[in-house]
């Protein structure tokens, strides 16, 4: 018995070491840094412990803006992306011959570098030569200065992010759709059930676990959004910082202001927000599956 468990621990050791060094230690370190006052990372000195870093971050206008933007982003991007992905996945699944082709096309954004996609999208958004504005003006609307005006900065980011996150969702949903037994669809056909009813009553419940999974993963990654902002606005956070997100704020505090404690405090706040969201979702899931 003793020997056996020793052996077990030995097998676990590599994973445990990696988790400790790269996950647990940074986590604890972020917590401890966030309560150190005037923490100087370079010399590893500080003047005491306290919650001043949190006070500073929570009263910072820029952080409020970042938190607001991130919340709007998460609340809009994730559901939009899931609904659109679901429709597209169902459509692709229905076509037999071209399924492979479409699967590849829709998966392309996932395997392409965010920076490259950002450059392409900044052209799509261009106010004079952009694709999006030429479509808009085709329908008789005035062109929009997507990337120049603060009020469009977040919408532009959201549209870009919805498109980008669809790739992963479509793949997950397609995999899910394969698991729904064909007989159920056949039965529905026999009853000549309308297509929207088949979609809502068979397809959606059939891949409900995948939808929940995509939703949780989507919310978590939405709260950590940074790459999308960076690539779309060429390293800035939109015109006059109008598209700043929480992670961008953390990066700025750390690398630009050298306020290590405040950066850590903002990171801890973000950690608890994500934790809370995940907990709520778990409860909802439990409640629904009952």
């Amino acid at each position: 018995m003793e020997k056996k468990s020793m052996k077990g621990w030995l097998y676990l050791l590599p994973a445990l070491i990696i988790i400790t060094v790269f996950t647990l230690y940074p986590l604890i370190r972020a917590f401890s840094m966030s309560i150190m006052l005037d923490y100087d990372m370079i010399h590893n000195t500080f003047t005491g412990y306290g919650l001043e870093n949190y006070q500073k971050v929570l009263s910072d206008k820029s952080f409020h803006k970042a938190l607001g933007n991130t919340t709007i982003y998460a609340v809009v991007v994730v559901p939009c992306s899931i609904i659109l992905s679901l429709l597209i996945a169902a459509m692709i699944n229905g076509t037999k011959k071209t399924k492979g082709l479409f699967q590849t096309i829709y998966f392309l954004p996932y395997v392409t570098s965010v920076i490259a996609i950002g450059i392409v999208w900044s052209w799509i958004y261009n106010s004079r030569y952009g694709l999006l504005n030429s479509i808009i003006s085709f329908f008789g609307f005035d062109p929009i200065e997507w990337l120049n005006k603060p009020k469009y900065a977040l919408p532009a980011l959201i549209i870009f992010a919805v498109w980008k996150s669809m790739a992963f969702n479509i793949m997950v949903f397609l995999a899910g759709l394969q698991t729904i037994p064909k007989e159920i669809y056949d039965a529905a056909k026999v009853d000549s059930t309308p297509r929207w009813r088949v979609f809502l009553r068979i397809t959606v419940p059939g891949i409900a676990p995948m939808i929940v999974y995509s939703y949780i993963m989507g919310i978590i990654s939405a709260f950590k959004v940074y790459n999308e902002v960076y690539s779309l606005y060429g390293g800035k956070a939109g015109p006059a910082d109008s598209a700043i997100t929480v992670v961008y704020y953390i990066w700025k505090k750390f690398y630009q202001s050298f306020k290590y404690g405040e950066a850590a405090a903002a990171a801890v706040i973000l950690f608890f927000i994500i934790l809370a969201f995940t907990m709520v979702q778990k409860l909802v899931r439990k409640f629904l599956s009952r």
């Binding site: 604890i28 917590f31 401890s32 309560i35 150190m36 005491g48 412990y49």
Partner: peptide, 24 residues
């Protein structure tokens, strides 16, 4: 535990001499 330990430290220490601190 980590949070509790951290907040305990936060509670008792103001202007700690960095050399005497445990975490660092």
């Amino acid at each position: 535990t980590a949070v509790m330990a951290a907040s305990a430290l936060a509670g008792c220490a103001q202007k700690v001499d960095p050399n005497a601190d445990t975490a660092a």
